[in-house]
Amino acid sequence: MKLSVLAALNAERAARRTAVLVTELASGRQRLVKAADFDADPLADALAAQVASRKSGVVAVGGNDYFLSVAVPPVKAVAIGAVHISQALAPMARLAGIDLTIVDPRTAFASKSRFPDVTVLAEWPDVALPRIGLDGHSALIALTHDPKIDDPAIAAGLSAGCFYVGALGSRKTHARRVERLAAAGFGEADIARIRAPVGLDIGAVSPAEIAVSILAEIIAAQHKKPARPVAA
């Protein structure tokens, strides 16, 4: 690999842009194809298929084997609530390669000193989420316990088709939340997509344990589709 190619690949990764490193295995010839150039590439079809799957792989085209190394932006996650669980979740998400942003309009919570290594936006979800840009590769976790803050974020997550929408709170809290979302016009299928109580049932008690259960549930949702049957 030429250093210039490696540097260009790292630049695309750092800028969170999609790119594919194409290696002709027999000769070692290599080229980096950026997203904008996919259509014009001789391997356009193979590139499109590989990027859609978000996975690298070997393809045979015209008698040659090519390894397509796919670089896609990391999965995005937004935690609503700069709370104790988020403090534990931030380093764990980073280790798992998830790009976490924390949103909380309460500036006492959303302080840099409480979250030294993660992006914290001291803004209301209505302001922050459109800027972050939720999509089908995003996860949203509502952790404030405050409907004024959580509800608009959950609504945004459902509307954007986030692959994971989780909300902290007891079954009773969630029942009231469901009533509010239904009143706001969300149908049964949308509401059933909310993971509540949030996280896999591992008997988590401490903030760190709850963070593990949430992260595990996000990973399951990412790799296993459908993640789990809709529970009653």
Binding site: L3, L6, A7, N10, R13, A14
Partner: peptide
């Protein structure tokens, strides 16, 4: 994986 390729560079 990102860190690893950055370290290679």
């Amino acid at each position: 994986e990102d860190d690893i390729l950055s370290r290679a560079e």
